[in-house]
């Protein structure tokens, strides 16, 4: 019985992306790290709440192959990201650039912070009186 549980736990653990084996033949550690970084940052377009690294969709595999090819050909990060954004738009990256369309996305937390600060100051003043 115990071994069964152990087998089940191992099976569950092995599904984690941490255990994913990358089959690409990178020249050095920098390339491997750049590949990891990019696939973490790029969105899988098919399963939209996953990044490329976590996704096993066919298109995600194609895109990972593409990213690996670029990395092995010594393309830098910006070039590879630009390639993806040109084809799939800002949506493809989990780290969208700051522009008119994403302004609210980037600054809404600060607006909420500001509202909180105003309420806090208001309350402190009231207490002092």
């Amino acid at each position: 019985m115990n071994t069964r549980y152990l087998a089940l736990i191992l099976l569950l653990l092995s599904s984690s992306s941490l255990w994913a084996i990358e089959v690409y033949d990178f020249k050095n550690q920098q390339q491997r790290e750049l590949y990891q970084e990019l696939t973490q940052e790029l969105r899988c377009l098919v399963c939209q709440n996953q990044n490329l690294a976590d996704s096993d969709a066919d298109l995600a595999k194609d895109l990972k192959n593409q990213v690996a090819d670029f990395v092995m050909n010594n393309q830098d990060k910006d070039t590879i990201l630009a390639y993806m954004v040109q084809r799939y738009g800002d949506f493809v990256t989990y780290n969208p650039p700051l522009n008119a369309g994403t302004f609210f996305l980037w600054f809404s937390p600060f607006i909420v912070l500001l509202i909180g600060a105003v309420i806090l100051i208001f309350n402190i003043r009231k207490k002092k009186q």
Binding site: L45, D58, L59, D62, L63, R87, Y88, G89
Partner: peptide
């Protein structure tokens, strides 16, 4: 067959 042109077109499904 490979899917490279589809990627160039931004096809995702």
């Amino acid at each position: 067959y490979v899917g490279n042109t589809a990627i160039d077109f931004g096809v995702y499904g």
